[in-house]
């Protein structure tokens, strides 16, 4: 069966792309349906797999009050969806020098003072296509709980939908990004194995062996193949 036949066999639905009606196969994602209809993306499409946040989509079903949010590459079309994409979010990251920022209780408030204006409406959480508890992320930021803010926000794909909805004009995903780098840089315990290995490499511990392998790779391939075959495998 050809792909297009399969698509059509699944039945079709009517969607409204920025208000215009199109009939599209029912088993397509919003992204593929828009393409099926004849559009070619420049904006609004990045990874096509739910990792980049380029394809934020706002939609409303016919006769519904509720405005809904999704990633176009991760959501199937439904009958009578009214769709629009959000190709850009005007929300700059603050400028700071991470080397000079201390991971203290007030640091997030200092860099992003507007978080104090959160009215706890929970709109951000309801908007998030990753189901992150965004309001809790901001509340943690206000309290200065960097760890919590970092961990709760970890799955954020920075689509910006929360920032477009917030009545307090907070840029949640930038705040959370700062919390995560502060946490990763200052608060996570550091690996001793790594330090040790770096010292060993700097002292030249492996140079001779590696250079021998390079030499073998040119002069005696069989020997290196044998070494590869016989290497011990950790299970």
């Amino acid at each position: 069966m050809k792909k297009e036949d399969v698509e059509e066999k699944a039945g079709t639905v009517e969607v409204f792309i920025m208000g215009k009606s199109y009939r599209v196969p029912a088993n397509l994602t919003i992204m593929k349906a828009i393409e099926y209809a004849g559009y070619r993306f420049i904006r609004g499409c990045g990874c096509r797999a739910g990792f980049c946040g380029a394809c934020s989509t706002v939609y409303r079903r016919e006769n519904e009050q509720k405005l809904r949010f999704a990633l176009a590459c991760q959501k199937l079309v439904e009958d009578k969806m009214y769709l629009v994409q959000l190709p850009f979010v005007p929300a700059d990251q603050a400028k700071y020098d991470l080397e000079k920022l201390k991971p203290d209780e007030n640091v997030l408030l200092r860099v992003y003072p507007e978080i104090a204006r959160c009215v706890a409406c929970n709109t951000c959480t309801k908007t998030c296509p990753q189901d992150i508890e965004v309001m809790k992320v901001i509340q943690a930021a206000i309290r200065g709980d960097i760890k919590k803010c970092a961990e709760l926000s970890f799955d954020c794909i920075q689509c910006g939908l929360c920032a477009m909805r917030c009545p307090a004009d907070i840029k949640h995903y930038h705040v959370a990004q700062l919390a995560r780098v502060l946490y990763g840089k200052h608060l996570m315990p550091k690996s001793k194995n790594l330090e040790k290995r770096i010292k060993e490499i700097e002292e030249g511990k492996f140079d001779e062996e590696i250079d021998r392998l390079i030499k073998l790779s040119k002069e005696n391939k069989e020997e290196i193949v044998r070494m590869y075959k016989e290497r011990e495998i950790e299970e």
């Binding site: 991470l98 780098v181 990763g184 840089k185 001793k192 790594l194």
Partner: peptide, 18 residues
């Protein structure tokens, strides 16, 4: 190590080992 300094949150155990 560079990533650590930039703040990448790698999975670690309680002692900080990856």
């Amino acid at each position: 190590k560079w990533h650590e300094e930039l703040g990448v949150m790698y999975d670690r155990d309680e002692n900080g080992e990856f």
